[in-house]
Design a protein around this nucleic acid. Sequence first.
DNA 1: CTGAAAGCGCTAACAC
DNA 2: GTGTTAGCGCTTTCAG
Lengths: 341, 341
Amino acid sequence: MTEMARGPSNRSAPIKITDVAAAAGVAPMTVSRVLNTPDRVSPETTARVRAAIERLGYVPNLIAGGLSSRKSRMVAAIVPTIAHPMFAGLVQAFTDSMRQAGYQVMLSICGYHDPDDEGLFRALLGRRPDALLITGSSYSPAALQMLIEAHIPVVEIWDVSSRPIDMMLGFGHAQVGAEVAAFFHAKEHDRCAVLVADDSRAVSRARGFVEGVAKAGGTLVREMIVPAPSTISAGREGLRSLLPDLGERCALFCGSDLMAFGVVTEARIQGVAVPDRLAVCGFGNFELAAQCDPAITTVSLEGVETGRSAATMLLRRLAGEEPRDADRMQVPFSIIERATT
Amino acid sequence: MTEMARGPSNRSAPIKITDVAAAAGVAPMTVSRVLNTPDRVSPETTARVRAAIERLGYVPNLIAGGLSSRKSRMVAAIVPTIAHPMFAGLVQAFTDSMRQAGYQVMLSICGYHDPDDEGLFRALLGRRPDALLITGSSYSPAALQMLIEAHIPVVEIWDVSSRPIDMMLGFGHAQVGAEVAAFFHAKEHDRCAVLVADDSRAVSRARGFVEGVAKAGGTLVREMIVPAPSTISAGREGLRSLLPDLGERCALFCGSDLMAFGVVTEARIQGVAVPDRLAVCGFGNFELAAQCDPAITTVSLEGVETGRSAATMLLRRLAGEEPRDADRMQVPFSIIERATT
DNA sequence: CTGAAAGCGCTAACAC
DNA sequence: GTGTTAGCGCTTTCAG
């Protein structure tokens, strides 16, 4: 074992394309072609080059390649949280789809109210992503301006209410609220309440709900907006606070299934009959809502499908296709009725 | 408004450092210094350059900078999932800490059994991250070899049982299982069972538990290993399957709080008294375990603290400090006793 | 404190 | 098919 060990470099300088080229007896450009456009290289050469790559343990420097080709093969994604199962599913599906197409995803988690969105965008855009996925758009005008000037495909998810930068994929949150109100009305609930965390989309849903209740001639017992995030304990506290106003019969729309679960849990503890005295509808269709007892009626969102669609939209544009109408898409949502209504 | 609009470039080529330099009447190098080492530039020059940057909407190309400086100011992180609250917390805390220090995190979600770990590592290392966070190490030898040859700081989290690549931060999963077994024993449970998903760490915990039960002279009623991931419905099904063997009294250790919640829910439906006939301990200390009713006894993990510690370890090394003993750290865990035991 | 020259590792564009 | 040349946009290094 005193001979030089075979196999990759022992703690020497990192292998680069010229090393591989030298080892294979070809020009660097040929190595590059083997990696990027294999069909333009003869099989024998390819084999020799591949062997050299293998032997040296060469890992191409994508940074250098990106600088040269002006393509980073990287997309940035910004979501407020990954604790929310819908976003978790979305991110996972988006990442998978992009990776399959050869893109790496840089994920940023920005919270619901990022004070320094400009700083975040600068850090992201500075890496010259080929495309961008962002959530909603409660961003500062300066930050949005940066996005526009980046001249890359951008897809906004989660909210279709605002003026889009480029592509858009989501649903009107107010509309969700309205549909839940209509659903409650159809079930002959005329006393309604709503409990949400104060993030702008949830508040939109609440507003849509309140309007829907009014339009249907119902009574709004209470509109509770609590600090984000939307948690189980917020739901439990919410119900305790609502208790005095509950009356004979009341229907409550919650900002998330977590909250709804908290409400249902606390209701059992407090001896409030669900759904007879209190009907509950959640939002998000988390596993919890389906599997807890009683199972919770909720609004289903299809995070996975949204993530996949977002990837498809971006990939189409990255492949050079022109913008089209379908680039402004509503994501379907549906009310899944279960035991709490 | 027929004059040329003020403000940043209207759809022209992207602004680069030479544009800013020209606009400010300085050399490109001076612009670079304003951005990277502001204290080495006179205040007046700085002001002029900053104004030009602002006016042109210049966003430095970090790709080019990285190539030149051989520092990407980027770290890669690999986790199996973000659906698990512990990982979600960890990732969030890690990302925050790194971002504060000026590093961007590239997150990869690899699932529990990635067939193409080499491909993933190549994609990541090709971007020349300055450091790496990885979860556990059920990776192929070739893939691990790539990590070693990257010659960057690596911190492995989540499992301290294997031989480390560099730094390590986690806890012995087998030890967790053993402690839960001891905990059950202390509560005079001599009939025990365990239910986990088949991911390698969860299986380690189960094994530790089984050994612990044996050591304490207890009886292992059942060891159930179900397909990953660990879900509520897996817990519900698990209990149904366990039902015939439950006997008078039994203590069950679950692979996650989700499973434990499923078990407790199904137990209520089936009329199994918790904790009198069936004691349950979860794993992970999710909000759900604390807030459901009955609240679930669990093992608490401190994902947030782990993420922060991992960041600290890496940042120390990135700042040039030498490896030290503290680089192999146990993350504390604790059993939180609640109503299900 | 500021500038000029050289080059990071790769690929586009054009030869051969 | 393969090689050569010339950068990509920035920072290092060295001079002033």
